[in-house]
């Protein structure tokens, strides 16, 4: 109920998206439910979305943060394409984070692409929420 008092959270919209040909979204659903319980408005893309489809959803929904779940192994390629699509649509100054089966040696690659945080399997949902709340309070969304 504390969230009722937190006016700053009022218009914080978050998109959770599944990119590419992986059909497992239990992790995405857990994050969605957790964020909803924390008072966010959460939009889910559904499975098997292309980078362009996800970029269009993020833009139309004007989300403050975009979380992408990838378990297929193509996280570097898909994230690169997604960032290009987002740039083409002039969708800037937002928070992008990636979760899924991400090997250690790829985390750096994703961060270099412009991803703000990577949450591999076994990440603690409370840690994700804490990080997100901090980022949202410091990132100016315009």
């Amino acid at each position: 109920m504390n969230n009722m008092l937190n006016g700053s959270k009022k218009n914080r919209r978050i998109l959770i998206a599944k990119l590419g040909l992986d059909g497992h979204d239990k992790g995405a659903k857990i994050i969605i439910n957790f964020l909803k319980e924390a008072g966010y408005q959460v939009i889910y893309s559904g499975l098997h979305k292309s980078p362009r489809e996800v970029a269009n959803i993020a833009v139309q929904e004007d989300v403050a943060a975009l979380g992408v779940s990838i378990l297929s192994g193509s996280h570097v390629e898909l994230t690169t394409e997604l960032i290009n699509e987002l740039k083409m649509l002039n969708f800037v100054n937002r928070i992008l984070f990636v979760g899924g089966i991400i090997p250690d040696h790829d985390i750096e690659k994703l961060l270099n692409l412009g991803v703000l945080a990577v949450f591999p399997t076994n990440s603690d949902v409370n840690e994700i929420l804490k990080w997100l709340e901090k980022r949202l309070s410091t990132t100016k969304v315009c």
């Binding site: 924390a38 408005q41 959460v42 939009i43």
Partner: peptide, 8 residues
């Protein structure tokens, strides 16, 4: 209760 929503 949570003031959150799942927009599906």
């Amino acid at each position: 209760f949570s003031t959150g929503s799942f927009l599906g």
